[in-house]
Design a protein around this nucleic acid. Structure first.
Lengths: 354, 354
DNA sequence: TTGAAAGCGCTACCAA
DNA sequence: TTGGTAGCGCTTTCAA
């Protein structure tokens, strides 16, 4: 008895010109179901009917209501991305590469920045869960696994990128961080550096891995590891990079004026380190060789073009996004997959002494 | 008669541990309505009841279903952001500033990159419309107004940032581009430059404004404007910046070996220009002074620290986001607002000749 | 102060 | 091949 509604004011289409299936159905004298099926390419619709429907849809600029669809199917066609910092070119590049995969596949990408703050990140993950995203990609600042447990409880697929959580098996796309540290430090050793410092990060896996590689390279070369040669910088806020590197290097130079090599956690840190070195009246690479990490896209344009370790951020983004899509489509949860990208040394002026 | 459902298998809570209002209602012996009202702080719920409800919600980690809510209220609590390039630090900074406002306000930010491609941008705007975002913030690569007309038809508020569309009245937050060009060029003139080139962009408002400022500055100083001193670079793809500036400058130097100043469309272009100049064996600023635009956060760390015009990208992001939120909450569409940020010259090494 | 009924726009399921 | 019915989880409206 609700068949022929709108008995009085039979406005053709209603408020805000937002066309619904019902409108098209009435317009063509078909049922909503037929429209729905035609739209989704269901097999049991006559070709002729389907084309009639599709044609009218285009004419009316019909766009399915995501919310209504999501309510039934449980799929929001939305993927959440959590990064520590949108400005850091490494993550910006990853975000771009992810978007390049998810966008054409019909997914919206909700991007949030945790500012490298574990507490904030937990809230953002909770927000994304509340939004019922279909999957998440996370470069985490966490050390605890609480948030990930929440995600798993909800049976939402997720992929960790860049940073992994020790002892927590999850889908992961990143770099062999120990190899990064090895590559960078061995290069400095080959360049004849004898007193090499490392500006390290916090308890994040990437920082720990690079530190391990650093130690390993020294051991392999039978060089003594001076604990004071390792300085950790905080991971707070905007200036995490340049400022952190700058201040750490300044202190290092006061204690060790004869330092001749520095391996830095990442390129922004290396930029700060170079500033401190140059301000101290020392030359790069003649007095001190500097190696960064990340191969951020402007590192070749710096005051002294920076030797660095490339991590192929575009590949990280691309693979993590593809993995994500495959997880969404998977019927059953497949076992956690790990994808490690091999780092590559990019030699520039800042480290070449021979 | 659907009162006491789940007659046989009275599972406490259903699949995937996603708690619904109904679950809480049954749990507490209340109606769904009471839960709904308590959750939203409706006035006509007894304080005691509300607290009971809220307590149980927290315990069960209840999270309202956005899709269901959106279906009724028409609000998705989602804002769409369209930028030409996520990697360009100028837009990355804007995105971060926007997120800093929208996130705490409870909105999700769907970020898409148009790659400075008008066609792609149109598709992305259509996608965001299909998602029924509550508002959009757009740094557009369009010259046509077609997409914006679509947005207006839907009565979705939107704010243009950085780039405006000539003759199209819309909410806008950006910079006085002519002032940018004036500031930069006058500075070069004050530094004694006599033969100043400008590496310009396409038909985007920012590029045109800066070009106008450039011309105006020359006119004010009674200097002759040599049309060949103005070179436009394409706006295609990743290398739009550095590579474009590099190649344009190389050509310029072949034709005008005695050039003594260059005002560049933006900082990445200036980086490319500087590379070309240095490769040609010329010195910066002694032979050629260079000024960029954008004050991208690493411009002080470049081979030659770059003089540039600061556009306060953080302010652009903040104001546009705030405007956006106010538009969403507005009952009636207020008249279009324009917010112009005053640019500021940042003098560094690349231009100082006296 | 509480709750029953209706329905947002769509799809799953089944009957015709 | 088509369409009726039911219902996803929530809010709006109005009655108790």
């Amino acid at each position: 008895m609700t068949q022929q509604n709108d008995p009085v004011k039979k406005r053709r289409f209603r408020k805000g010109s937002v066309v619904r299936m019902k409108d098209i159905a009435q317009d063509l004298g078909l049922s909503t179901m037929t429209i729905s099926k035609a739209l989704r390419g269901h097999s049991d619709i006559r070709k002729e009917t389907r084309e009639r429907v599709l044609k009218r849809m285009r004419e009316l600029n019909y766009q399915p209501n995501f919310a209504a669809r999501a309510l039934i199917t449980g799929r929001t066609w939305t993927i959440g991305l959590v990064v520590p910092d949108l400005i850091h070119p490494f993550f910006a590049q990853i975000a771009k590469a992810i978007s390049a995969v998810t966008q054409p596949a019909g997914y919206g990408l909700v991007i949030t920045s945790s500012e490298d703050n574990a507490e904030l990140e937990r809230k953002e993950i909770a927000q994304l869960l509340a939004r019922r995203v279909d999957a998440m990609i996370i470069a985490s600042a966490q050390v605890s696994t609480e948030s990930f447990q929440l995600i798993e409880n909800r049976r939402i697929p997720y992929v960790l990128i860049d940073r992994r959580i020790s002892g927590w098996p999850a889908n992961f796309v990143g770099v062999d961080d120990k190899a990064v540290g090895l590559l960078a430090t061995q290069h400095l050793i080959e360049q004849g550096c004898k007193r090499i410092a490392h500006i390290a990060g916090g308890k994040i896996s990437t920082a720990l891995g690079r530190l391990n590689g650093f130690k390993r390279a020294l051991a392999v070369a039978h060089m003594r590891l001076l604990p004071a040669h390792i300085v950790s910088i905080g991971t707070s806020g905007d200036d995490r990079g340049e400022l952190g590197g700058y201040e750490a290097t300044k202190k290092l130079l006061q204690i060790f004026p004869r330092l001749d090599g520095v391996f830095c956690l990442n390129d922004p840190v290396a930029m700060g380190a170079m500033r401190a070195i140059l301000e101290a009246g020392l030359r790069i690479p003649k007095d001190i060789a500097v190696v960064g990490c990340g191969n951020v896209h402007y590192s070749g344009f710096l005051r002294v073009p920076l030797t660095t370790v490339d991590q192929d951020s575009t590949a990280i983004g691309k693979y993590s996004a593809e993995l994500c899509l495959s997880l969404i489509d998977a019927k059953r949860t497949p076992p956690a997959k790990e994808l490690l990208i091999t780092p590559k040394l990019i030699v520039r002026e800042s480290s070449v002494r021979r």
